[in-house]
Design a binder for these strands. Structure first.
Length: 355
DNA sequence: CTGCAATGTCATCAA
DNA sequence: CGTTGATGACATTGC
Protein backbone atom coordinates (compact mmCIF):
# COMPACT_ATOMS: atom_id res chain seq x y z
CA UNK A 1 0.00 0.00 0.00
CA UNK A 2 2.84 2.35 0.70
CA UNK A 3 4.19 1.78 -2.71
CA UNK A 4 0.85 2.36 -4.24
CA UNK A 5 0.33 5.57 -2.40
CA UNK A 6 3.72 6.81 -3.45
CA UNK A 7 2.97 6.04 -7.03
CA UNK A 8 -0.40 7.67 -6.78
CA UNK A 9 1.03 10.83 -5.33
CA UNK A 10 3.75 11.14 -7.85
CA UNK A 11 1.46 10.37 -10.71
CA UNK A 12 -1.25 12.80 -9.83
CA UNK A 13 1.05 15.53 -8.68
CA UNK A 14 2.65 15.38 -12.07
CA UNK A 15 -0.68 15.79 -13.71
CA UNK A 16 -1.43 18.79 -11.56
CA UNK A 17 1.78 20.46 -12.46
CA UNK A 18 1.38 19.68 -16.12
CA UNK A 19 -2.03 21.15 -16.12
CA UNK A 20 -0.78 24.66 -16.04
CA UNK A 21 2.51 24.33 -17.79
CA UNK A 22 1.65 22.44 -20.91
CA UNK A 23 3.03 23.58 -24.21
CA UNK A 24 2.47 22.55 -27.75
CA UNK A 25 5.87 20.90 -27.78
CA UNK A 26 4.75 18.71 -24.96
CA UNK A 27 1.59 18.00 -26.82
CA UNK A 28 3.51 16.87 -29.82
CA UNK A 29 5.89 14.63 -27.91
CA UNK A 30 3.15 13.07 -25.87
CA UNK A 31 0.99 12.84 -28.93
CA UNK A 32 3.36 10.30 -30.38
CA UNK A 33 3.53 8.29 -27.21
CA UNK A 34 -0.19 8.39 -26.81
CA UNK A 35 -0.66 7.15 -30.29
CA UNK A 36 1.58 4.22 -29.47
CA UNK A 37 -0.11 3.70 -26.16
CA UNK A 38 -3.49 3.37 -27.71
CA UNK A 39 -2.41 0.78 -30.21
CA UNK A 40 -3.49 -2.80 -29.52
CA UNK A 41 -1.05 -4.38 -27.19
CA UNK A 42 0.95 -7.40 -28.09
CA UNK A 43 1.38 -10.36 -25.85
CA UNK A 44 4.94 -9.37 -25.31
CA UNK A 45 3.88 -5.96 -24.21
CA UNK A 46 1.33 -7.35 -21.90
CA UNK A 47 3.98 -9.34 -20.19
CA UNK A 48 5.94 -6.25 -19.42
CA UNK A 49 3.49 -4.67 -17.06
CA UNK A 50 5.36 -3.39 -14.11
CA UNK A 51 4.66 -4.23 -10.56
CA UNK A 52 4.09 -0.60 -9.69
CA UNK A 53 1.39 -0.19 -12.26
CA UNK A 54 -0.33 -3.33 -11.12
CA UNK A 55 -0.37 -2.00 -7.59
CA UNK A 56 -1.67 1.28 -8.76
CA UNK A 57 -4.43 -0.28 -10.74
CA UNK A 58 -5.46 -2.54 -7.93
CA UNK A 59 -5.36 0.26 -5.49
CA UNK A 60 -7.83 2.21 -7.54
CA UNK A 61 -10.21 -0.70 -7.71
CA UNK A 62 -10.16 -0.54 -11.42
CA UNK A 63 -10.74 -3.53 -13.67
CA UNK A 64 -7.62 -5.53 -14.01
CA UNK A 65 -6.41 -4.46 -17.38
CA UNK A 66 -2.82 -5.01 -18.32
CA UNK A 67 -1.08 -1.91 -19.46
CA UNK A 68 2.21 -1.48 -21.14
CA UNK A 69 4.07 1.68 -20.47
CA UNK A 70 7.54 0.35 -20.68
CA UNK A 71 8.18 1.79 -24.13
CA UNK A 72 7.53 5.28 -22.96
CA UNK A 73 7.07 6.00 -19.35
CA UNK A 74 6.06 9.60 -20.03
CA UNK A 75 2.91 8.46 -21.66
CA UNK A 76 1.45 7.40 -18.38
CA UNK A 77 2.60 10.12 -16.13
CA UNK A 78 -0.76 11.65 -16.55
CA UNK A 79 -3.63 10.46 -14.48
CA UNK A 80 -6.25 11.47 -16.97
CA UNK A 81 -5.08 9.20 -19.69
CA UNK A 82 -4.83 6.36 -17.22
CA UNK A 83 -8.32 7.04 -15.97
CA UNK A 84 -9.62 7.26 -19.45
CA UNK A 85 -8.00 4.08 -20.59
CA UNK A 86 -9.01 2.19 -17.52
CA UNK A 87 -12.59 3.21 -17.76
CA UNK A 88 -12.88 2.37 -21.40
CA UNK A 89 -15.57 -0.19 -21.80
CA UNK A 90 -16.77 0.18 -18.24
CA UNK A 91 -19.64 2.01 -16.75
CA UNK A 92 -17.43 4.16 -14.62
CA UNK A 93 -17.55 7.83 -15.51
CA UNK A 94 -14.47 9.31 -17.08
CA UNK A 95 -13.15 12.55 -15.62
CA UNK A 96 -13.20 14.13 -19.06
CA UNK A 97 -16.54 12.81 -20.17
CA UNK A 98 -18.19 16.22 -20.13
CA UNK A 99 -15.38 17.55 -22.22
CA UNK A 100 -15.62 14.71 -24.66
CA UNK A 101 -19.31 15.18 -24.80
CA UNK A 102 -18.83 18.77 -25.80
CA UNK A 103 -16.04 17.66 -28.03
CA UNK A 104 -18.38 15.40 -29.88
CA UNK A 105 -20.79 18.22 -30.39
CA UNK A 106 -18.12 20.52 -31.66
CA UNK A 107 -16.75 17.82 -33.88
CA UNK A 108 -20.13 17.26 -35.39
CA UNK A 109 -20.27 20.92 -36.21
CA UNK A 110 -16.81 20.84 -37.65
CA UNK A 111 -17.48 17.78 -39.70
CA UNK A 112 -20.69 19.23 -41.01
CA UNK A 113 -18.87 22.30 -42.12
CA UNK A 114 -16.02 20.34 -43.57
CA UNK A 115 -18.35 18.04 -45.42
CA UNK A 116 -20.32 20.95 -46.71
CA UNK A 117 -17.22 22.55 -48.09
CA UNK A 118 -16.01 19.26 -49.46
CA UNK A 119 -19.23 18.65 -51.30
CA UNK A 120 -19.06 22.11 -52.75
CA UNK A 121 -15.54 21.56 -53.95
CA UNK A 122 -16.50 18.22 -55.42
CA UNK A 123 -19.49 19.63 -57.21
CA UNK A 124 -17.32 22.36 -58.60
CA UNK A 125 -14.81 19.84 -59.80
CA UNK A 126 -17.47 17.70 -61.36
CA UNK A 127 -19.09 20.65 -63.02
CA UNK A 128 -16.42 23.11 -64.01
CA UNK A 129 -18.91 25.22 -65.87
CA UNK A 130 -20.73 25.83 -62.66
CA UNK A 131 -17.61 26.59 -60.79
CA UNK A 132 -16.65 29.03 -63.44
CA UNK A 133 -19.93 30.74 -63.16
CA UNK A 134 -19.92 33.75 -61.03
CA UNK A 135 -22.64 32.54 -58.76
CA UNK A 136 -21.50 29.08 -58.35
CA UNK A 137 -22.11 28.36 -54.75
CA UNK A 138 -25.64 29.18 -54.00
CA UNK A 139 -26.88 30.69 -57.17
CA UNK A 140 -27.36 28.98 -60.43
CA UNK A 141 -27.29 32.24 -62.25
CA UNK A 142 -24.36 33.65 -64.01
CA UNK A 143 -23.59 36.11 -66.75
CA UNK A 144 -24.98 35.05 -70.04
CA UNK A 145 -23.01 33.38 -72.67
CA UNK A 146 -22.51 35.26 -75.89
CA UNK A 147 -23.65 32.23 -77.77
CA UNK A 148 -26.98 32.14 -76.07
CA UNK A 149 -28.86 33.81 -78.82
CA UNK A 150 -32.15 33.89 -77.01
CA UNK A 151 -30.80 35.04 -73.73
CA UNK A 152 -31.64 38.57 -72.96
CA UNK A 153 -31.24 40.90 -70.12
CA UNK A 154 -34.55 39.87 -68.74
CA UNK A 155 -33.70 36.22 -68.52
CA UNK A 156 -31.29 35.98 -65.71
CA UNK A 157 -28.40 34.37 -67.42
CA UNK A 158 -27.96 30.68 -66.89
CA UNK A 159 -24.94 29.75 -68.87
CA UNK A 160 -21.45 30.84 -68.14
CA UNK A 161 -19.26 29.60 -70.90
CA UNK A 162 -17.11 32.50 -71.85
CA UNK A 163 -15.85 35.57 -70.20
CA UNK A 164 -14.93 37.13 -73.50
CA UNK A 165 -17.26 39.40 -75.26
CA UNK A 166 -18.15 38.83 -78.83
CA UNK A 167 -15.95 41.69 -79.87
CA UNK A 168 -13.16 40.39 -77.76
CA UNK A 169 -13.03 43.42 -75.56
CA UNK A 170 -11.65 42.41 -72.24
CA UNK A 171 -9.08 44.71 -70.84
CA UNK A 172 -10.71 47.99 -71.55
CA UNK A 173 -13.82 47.42 -69.60
CA UNK A 174 -13.61 48.76 -66.12
CA UNK A 175 -16.41 51.10 -65.25
CA UNK A 176 -16.14 52.90 -62.01
CA UNK A 177 -18.79 50.91 -60.23
CA UNK A 178 -17.35 47.62 -61.28
CA UNK A 179 -13.92 48.89 -60.42
CA UNK A 180 -15.17 49.76 -57.01
CA UNK A 181 -16.75 46.37 -56.53
CA UNK A 182 -13.68 44.55 -57.66
CA UNK A 183 -11.36 46.46 -55.45
CA UNK A 184 -13.61 46.31 -52.44
CA UNK A 185 -13.93 42.57 -52.76
CA UNK A 186 -10.37 41.91 -53.55
CA UNK A 187 -9.62 40.72 -50.07
CA UNK A 188 -12.66 38.54 -49.86
CA UNK A 189 -11.84 37.21 -53.28
CA UNK A 190 -8.43 36.17 -52.12
CA UNK A 191 -9.97 34.21 -49.32
CA UNK A 192 -13.02 32.94 -50.98
CA UNK A 193 -12.30 33.02 -54.68
CA UNK A 194 -15.32 34.82 -56.00
CA UNK A 195 -15.72 33.38 -59.43
CA UNK A 196 -18.79 35.40 -60.13
CA UNK A 197 -16.74 38.55 -60.10
CA UNK A 198 -14.46 37.33 -62.83
CA UNK A 199 -17.26 37.28 -65.32
CA UNK A 200 -18.81 40.52 -64.34
CA UNK A 201 -16.96 43.20 -66.13
CA UNK A 202 -15.83 41.07 -69.02
CA UNK A 203 -19.05 40.05 -70.61
CA UNK A 204 -20.51 42.58 -73.00
CA UNK A 205 -23.19 40.28 -74.25
CA UNK A 206 -25.86 40.11 -71.66
CA UNK A 207 -28.25 41.10 -74.34
CA UNK A 208 -28.53 40.24 -77.96
CA UNK A 209 -29.91 42.19 -80.88
CA UNK A 210 -33.61 42.58 -80.54
CA UNK A 211 -34.33 40.57 -83.63
CA UNK A 212 -32.65 37.56 -82.10
CA UNK A 213 -34.52 37.84 -78.88
CA UNK A 214 -37.80 36.20 -78.20
CA UNK A 215 -40.70 38.36 -77.44
CA UNK A 216 -40.86 38.70 -73.70
CA UNK A 217 -44.27 37.17 -73.53
CA UNK A 218 -44.37 35.47 -76.87
CA UNK A 219 -47.22 37.65 -77.93
CA UNK A 220 -47.30 36.22 -81.41
CA UNK A 221 -49.40 33.38 -80.12
CA UNK A 222 -52.01 35.61 -78.65
CA UNK A 223 -52.20 38.81 -80.62
CA UNK A 224 -53.20 39.65 -84.17
CA UNK A 225 -50.46 40.44 -86.61
CA UNK A 226 -50.83 44.18 -86.63
CA UNK A 227 -50.59 44.24 -82.88
CA UNK A 228 -47.50 42.09 -83.01
CA UNK A 229 -45.98 44.52 -85.46
CA UNK A 230 -46.92 47.39 -83.23
CA UNK A 231 -45.33 45.65 -80.35
CA UNK A 232 -42.11 44.91 -82.13
CA UNK A 233 -41.67 48.17 -83.96
CA UNK A 234 -39.95 50.66 -81.79
CA UNK A 235 -40.32 54.37 -82.16
CA UNK A 236 -37.14 54.48 -84.16
CA UNK A 237 -38.43 51.82 -86.49
CA UNK A 238 -41.59 53.79 -87.01
CA UNK A 239 -39.61 56.94 -87.68
CA UNK A 240 -37.39 55.09 -90.08
CA UNK A 241 -40.33 53.75 -92.00
CA UNK A 242 -41.87 57.21 -92.10
CA UNK A 243 -38.96 58.70 -93.99
CA UNK A 244 -38.36 55.64 -96.12
CA UNK A 245 -35.11 54.41 -94.73
CA UNK A 246 -34.41 51.20 -96.61
CA UNK A 247 -32.56 49.26 -93.91
CA UNK A 248 -33.67 47.39 -90.87
CA UNK A 249 -32.87 48.85 -87.51
CA UNK A 250 -30.99 45.73 -86.60
CA UNK A 251 -28.73 46.27 -89.58
CA UNK A 252 -28.28 49.91 -88.74
CA UNK A 253 -27.26 49.14 -85.21
CA UNK A 254 -25.17 46.03 -85.65
CA UNK A 255 -23.15 46.77 -88.76
CA UNK A 256 -19.49 47.56 -88.20
CA UNK A 257 -18.81 51.23 -88.54
CA UNK A 258 -17.02 50.99 -91.86
CA UNK A 259 -19.79 48.92 -93.39
CA UNK A 260 -22.31 51.29 -91.93
CA UNK A 261 -20.55 54.24 -93.53
CA UNK A 262 -20.33 52.34 -96.80
CA UNK A 263 -24.04 51.75 -96.63
CA UNK A 264 -24.72 55.42 -96.06
CA UNK A 265 -22.56 56.32 -99.02
CA UNK A 266 -24.20 53.75 -101.23
CA UNK A 267 -27.64 55.30 -100.97
CA UNK A 268 -28.31 58.91 -101.67
CA UNK A 269 -29.90 59.96 -98.41
CA UNK A 270 -30.90 63.41 -97.33
CA UNK A 271 -29.71 65.06 -94.14
CA UNK A 272 -32.77 64.09 -92.11
CA UNK A 273 -32.37 60.47 -93.08
CA UNK A 274 -28.68 60.48 -92.26
CA UNK A 275 -29.31 62.09 -88.91
CA UNK A 276 -32.02 59.62 -88.06
CA UNK A 277 -29.84 56.69 -89.10
CA UNK A 278 -27.06 57.85 -86.83
CA UNK A 279 -29.50 58.43 -84.01
CA UNK A 280 -31.00 54.99 -84.46
CA UNK A 281 -27.57 53.46 -84.42
CA UNK A 282 -26.52 55.39 -81.35
CA UNK A 283 -29.73 54.66 -79.47
CA UNK A 284 -29.68 51.03 -80.46
CA UNK A 285 -26.18 50.57 -79.20
CA UNK A 286 -26.92 52.46 -76.06
CA UNK A 287 -29.99 50.37 -75.49
CA UNK A 288 -27.92 47.22 -75.54
CA UNK A 289 -25.34 48.88 -73.37
CA UNK A 290 -28.01 49.80 -70.86
CA UNK A 291 -29.26 46.24 -70.83
CA UNK A 292 -25.73 45.01 -70.30
CA UNK A 293 -25.20 47.53 -67.58
CA UNK A 294 -28.35 46.57 -65.74
CA UNK A 295 -27.77 42.88 -66.01
CA UNK A 296 -24.23 43.38 -64.79
CA UNK A 297 -25.52 45.33 -61.86
CA UNK A 298 -27.91 42.52 -61.03
CA UNK A 299 -25.13 39.99 -61.23
CA UNK A 300 -22.97 42.07 -58.96
CA UNK A 301 -25.83 42.15 -56.51
CA UNK A 302 -26.32 38.40 -56.64
CA UNK A 303 -22.61 37.90 -56.34
CA UNK A 304 -22.53 40.06 -53.27
CA UNK A 305 -25.26 37.99 -51.70
CA UNK A 306 -23.26 34.92 -52.53
CA UNK A 307 -20.21 36.47 -50.90
CA UNK A 308 -22.20 37.22 -47.80
CA UNK A 309 -23.21 33.58 -47.58
CA UNK A 310 -19.63 32.46 -48.04
CA UNK A 311 -18.41 34.81 -45.37
CA UNK A 312 -21.09 33.61 -43.02
CA UNK A 313 -19.94 30.07 -43.53
CA UNK A 314 -16.36 31.10 -42.94
CA UNK A 315 -17.38 32.82 -39.77
CA UNK A 316 -19.14 29.69 -38.57
CA UNK A 317 -16.01 27.69 -39.21
CA UNK A 318 -13.86 30.14 -37.34
CA UNK A 319 -16.26 30.20 -34.44
CA UNK A 320 -16.13 26.43 -34.27
CA UNK A 321 -12.37 26.44 -34.41
CA UNK A 322 -12.30 29.07 -31.74
CA UNK A 323 -14.41 26.86 -29.54
CA UNK A 324 -12.03 23.98 -30.11
CA UNK A 325 -9.07 26.04 -29.05
CA UNK A 326 -10.96 27.46 -26.14
CA UNK A 327 -11.54 23.95 -24.88
CA UNK A 328 -7.88 23.22 -25.32
CA UNK A 329 -6.82 26.20 -23.30
CA UNK A 330 -4.89 25.62 -20.14
CA UNK A 331 -7.22 24.90 -17.30
CA UNK A 332 -9.94 23.42 -19.39
CA UNK A 333 -8.18 20.11 -19.47
CA UNK A 334 -6.90 18.38 -16.45
CA UNK A 335 -3.68 17.60 -18.24
CA UNK A 336 -1.76 17.80 -21.44
CA UNK A 337 -2.52 14.24 -22.25
CA UNK A 338 -6.20 14.82 -22.10
CA UNK A 339 -5.71 17.65 -24.49
CA UNK A 340 -3.79 15.32 -26.71
CA UNK A 341 -6.69 12.93 -26.68
CA UNK A 342 -8.84 15.79 -27.70
CA UNK A 343 -6.46 16.76 -30.45
CA UNK A 344 -6.44 13.21 -31.69
CA UNK A 345 -10.14 13.29 -31.69
CA UNK A 346 -10.19 16.46 -33.70
CA UNK A 347 -7.20 16.13 -35.92
CA UNK A 348 -9.08 15.27 -39.06
CA UNK A 349 -11.74 17.86 -38.49
CA UNK A 350 -9.26 20.60 -37.84
CA UNK A 351 -7.16 19.67 -40.83
CA UNK A 352 -10.23 19.60 -43.01
CA UNK A 353 -11.11 23.09 -41.95
CA UNK A 354 -7.60 24.36 -42.04
CA UNK A 355 -7.11 23.36 -45.63
C1' DC B 1 -55.65 56.71 -61.23
C1' DT B 2 -51.47 55.29 -58.78
C1' DG B 3 -47.41 52.68 -57.83
C1' DC B 4 -43.87 50.07 -59.43
C1' DA B 5 -40.69 47.50 -62.23
C1' DA B 6 -38.76 47.13 -66.63
C1' DT B 7 -37.06 49.36 -70.39
C1' DG B 8 -35.62 53.26 -73.32
C1' DT B 9 -33.14 57.53 -73.88
C1' DC B 10 -29.89 61.23 -73.03
C1' DA B 11 -25.65 63.18 -71.30
C1' DT B 12 -21.25 62.37 -70.14
C1' DC B 13 -16.95 60.19 -69.50
C1' DA B 14 -13.22 57.10 -70.73
C1' DA B 15 -10.80 54.05 -73.79
C1' DC C 1 -11.47 63.30 -83.65
C1' DG C 2 -15.00 59.90 -84.31
C1' DT C 3 -16.75 55.59 -82.41
C1' DT C 4 -18.09 52.78 -78.82
C1' DG C 5 -19.20 51.06 -74.21
C1' DA C 6 -20.54 52.14 -69.44
C1' DT C 7 -23.45 54.33 -66.40
C1' DG C 8 -26.23 57.89 -63.74
C1' DA C 9 -30.34 60.26 -64.28
C1' DC C 10 -34.60 60.91 -66.16
C1' DA C 11 -38.61 59.44 -69.25
C1' DT C 12 -41.68 56.09 -70.97
C1' DT C 13 -44.21 51.92 -70.93
C1' DG C 14 -46.92 48.23 -69.32
C1' DC C 15 -49.04 45.79 -65.68
Amino acid sequence: MDTAETIDNSTFSNSDSDRNTGSMENFIHQDVSLHQATLPRSTEAQNSVTMEETCCINNNSMPNINLDTSFNSEAFEDSDIIDLLLTTGTSLPSPIDPLLEEAMLVEMELMDLALEELSQVQSEEQNPADSDSGLSLDYSQSPASPSGSESSSSSSSSSCSSSLSKDGAVGGYMPEQTKMCQSSFLEAKQFHRLPWLEHIGHDHTYNQPQSQRKSPKDLSDELPKNKVLDHFSSRDEKRASLINIPFSNERIVNLPVDEFNRLLAKYHLNEAQLTLLRDIRRRGKNKMAAQNCRQRKLDVLLGLECSVDSLRRLRAKLVSLHRVFQILRIGQYRSNTSAILFLHHYRISILCLWN
